[in-house]
Design a protein around this nucleic acid. Structure first.
Lengths: 340, 340
DNA sequence: GTGAAAGCGCTAACAG
DNA sequence: CTGTTAGCGCTTTCAC
C-alpha cells in the first residue's frame, strides 16, 4: 500500500547510483545511453513514479501550483473566469488549486494562508471586502499575488478589473437618452466592491444629467433572481413606477426579466454581466458586457509574469465594457434574429 | 526573498528544541504553557509559516489534496459538479486541484499521472472514452479513484452516474404518450458514454412501442447550441418533419429552442440536463433532470470514505432522473412580448 | 560522465 | 514533559 518504489530502489535495481537515476528522471543528457536505458527499464518494471513533492522540497521551490480563490464557485461569472485561469496555467505546466471564499473575509484568509503553507507559486484572488495586509509577509517571501475582478486593500499587487463605474455610467446614459426618468436599480450587497462602483457610476450619470436617485427605486440586497423578482414587483406596484431598470449583475437581470414576464409587461432593462443563455431571454435586454475570459486570462498571465521574475511596478488594469443587445425580440416587430 | 524562517529558526530564537516547536505547531497539548508561549511569540516575530509540503513528505502521506478532472470546465454541468466537490472537500479540510481533459484521453492521462506525482490523496475523474488501467498501479499504491458522470473502463473503482438510459426512456415515453411519432434526436458525439446511453434508452423505448428510429431524425454531432440550430433547421425542412425533439444535453436544448423561436414555430421539446436559466426559455420544455450537486457530492463523499479506509466492494451508484417542466408558458395568447 | 555525502523542512522514534 | 537522532524522497554540492 505505501511501498512506492523510490529512486533508491530504481538505482539498486539498475545497479547505478541514485544520482544517475535522478539525472535520467530529469532528462539530463550527459548520461551514458546504456545506463539511461537500464534506468528506464528499471523504472518501468518497478513502476516508478517520481515524487514531485519531495523534489520541490529540496529545490526549495516551485510546486508548479497556483491557488485561485474566487467568491462563489456556483456563479457562472466566476467559473468562466476560473476556466480561463486553468487554461493559462496548463499552458505553463502549472496546476490550479481552486477554492471559494463565499464572500467571507475569514474564509478567504484561511484559504489564502493554507495555500501559502502549501507553497503555491502564486495566488489569484477575488478579494473580499477586507484588509489584505495579512498577505504581505507571504508576498515578501516570494508568493506572487494578483487580484482579479476587484482591487485588494492593504497590499501592493496587480489587479485586473472591469470598468464597473464607466459601464454603469454608459448604461444609465443609454436609458436617459431613451427618455427614461424613473430608473430602478437592483444590486447585490454594497459590501461588494463591484456593486459599490456600479451604483456610484449610475448615480454620477444621473447627477450629471440633473436627476436624483429615488431611494424607493434602489434595492441593494439582491442576491438571487428571486430577490430581484420581489424587488421588481414591489417597485412596479408604486404609484409612480419605474419605466426602466438597471440590474447590477446577471442574477438580478434574470429575476427582473422573469418578473416582467410574469406580469405580462415590459420596461427597458439594462443589466451588467453577460451570461450564456442571455440571447434566449424573452425580451430584449441591453447588457453591459466585458470579456470575462480576458479577465481571467490577464490575471493568470500577469501572475506568471511575476512568477517568472517580472519586477515592474504594480498596476491596475481596467477592462473596457460595451453595451450589447441580447434577448429575443417580440415576434410582432422582428425581421429575423439579431444577436449581440 | 527565499529565506523563510523554518522550525529551526524558531527553535533557536525561542531557545527550545526543534521538536518542541513541531509540537506547538501541531497543537500537541503536552507542552509546558510557558514554552508554548515563547514558541508562539518567536513564530510571530519571525513570521513563521509551517511548510506543509515538508510535513507531508515526512509523514509519507496525505497532502490533504484531491484532484478533480472533468471534461470541460466551461460547461455549467461540470462547474456545478465541481462546486459540490470543492464544498465537500473543504468540510474535510482538503483542497481541490481542478483540471480539464477537454474530452481527450491523452490529456486526461497526463493530468491524472501528474496529479499522482503530486501525491494527491485521491482522484475524482469524469472519464474519457478510454482504458483506465493505467491508473491501476497508482490505485494499488494508495491513491483512491472515483469516477463520476460516466463509468471508467479497465479499473476497479466506484462510479457515480445518472440513470441516463432510464431517463431517456422516460423522455421518449412522455413524447409517445403525447401522440408523437416523428421524434428528432439531437446528441453530442457517441464517443461520450452518456450520449451512447441516452441514445440507447431512446431507441429501446421506441422499439418497445413498436416504432423505428428514423436515421434522418438523428444528429449525433451536436457539440454546441449552434450545431443544434443547424440540425434542427435541417430536420424541420424535411418533407415529413419531426413533431417533437429529444435533446441529449442542455446545449442541444438551447439551440433547438432558439431555432424553433427563430422559425416562429413550436414542437414539443424534451431535453436532458437542467440549467440555471431554463425557466426563462421562451417555450415550455420538459427536462430530464437529476441532481448534479448530489452527483458531485456523492462522488466526493465516496472518495473520502475510501481515503479514510473504507474497504468495501466497489459499486456503481445510479442517480434517479425525473421529468420536470421548465420554460415560460405562453401568457394567454401570446408568444412574444406584446405591449399592453 | 558518474557517485558519495549532505541536507531541503519537517515528524517519528526513542531516550532522558 | 522535552530533546536527540534519524530519515521521508529527492537534488545539490563536489569529488572522482
Amino acid at each position: 500500500m505505501s511501498d512506492r518504489p523510490t529512486m533508491n530502489d530504481v538505482a539498486a535495481y539498475a545497479k547505478v547510483s541514485l544520482k544517475t537515476v535522478s539525472r535520467v528522471a530529469n532528462g539530463i543528457s550527459s548520461v551514458d545511453p546504456m545506463l539511461t536505458e537500464r534506468v528506464h527499464a528499471a523504472m518501468k518494471t518497478l513502476g516508478f513514479r517520481r515524487n514531485s513533492v519531495a523534489a520541490s522540497l529540496r529545490t526549495g521551490g516551485s510546486t508548479k501550483t497556483i491557488g485561485l480563490i474566487t467568491a462563489d464557485l456556483s456563479n457562472t461569472f466566476y467559473t468562466t473566469l476560473s476556466s480561463a485561469v486553468v487554461s493559462v496555467a496548463r499552458s505553463h505546466g502549472y496546476q490550479v488549486i481552486m477554492a471559494s471564499s463565499e464572500e467571507s473575509p475569514e474564509i478567504e484568509r484561511s484559504l489564502a494562508l493554507d495555500l501559502c503553507q502549501r507553497r503555491v507559486s502564486g495566488l489569484i484572488v477575488v478579494p473580499t471586502n477586507t484588509d489584505h495586509s495579512y498577505l504581505k509577509p507571504e508576498v515578501e517571501l516570494g508568493i506572487s499575488v494578483v487580484f482579479v475582478d476587484r482591487p485588494g486593500y492593504g497590499l501592493a499587487a496587480d489587479a485586473i478589473i472591469a470598468d464597473n463605474r464607466g459601464g454603469a455610467r454608459t448604461a444609465i446614459e443609454h436609458l436617459l437618452t431613451a427618455g427614461h426618468r424613473r430608473i430602478a436599480i437592483l444590486i447585490d450587497s454594497l459590501e461588494i466592491y463591484t456593486m459599490r462602483e456600479r451604483l456610484a457610476g449610475a448615480q454620477e450619470q444621473l447627477t450629471n444629467a440633473g436627476f436624483d436617485l429615488d431611494p424607493a427605486l434602489v434595492a441593494n440586497d439582491v442576491h438571487s433572481p428571486d430577490d430581484a423578482m420581489v424587488a421588481m414587483s414591489r417597485m412596479l406596484a408604486l404609484v409612480d413606477p419605474p419605466t426602466a431598470v438597471f440590474c447590477g449583475n446577471n442574477r438580478a437581470t434574470v429575476g427582473a426579466v422573469e418578473e416582467l414576464w410574469r406580469r405580462n409587461t415590459t420596461i427597458d432593462v439594462v443589466g451588467f454581466d453577460d451570461f450564456e443563455m442571455s440571447r434566449l431571454l424573452p425580451q430584449p435586454v441591453t447588457i453591459v458586457d466585458y470579456d470575462t475570459v480576458a479577465l481571467g486570462r490577464s490575471a493568470a498571465e500577469r501572475l506568471f509574469a511575476r512568477i517568472n521574475g517580472d519586477g515592474s511596478e504594480f498596476a491596475d488594469t481596467l477592462l473596457a465594457t460595451r453595451l450589447i443587445t441580447k434577448g429575443l425580440r417580440p415576434l410582432s416587430d422582428r425581421r429575423g434574429i439579431t444577436h449581440s
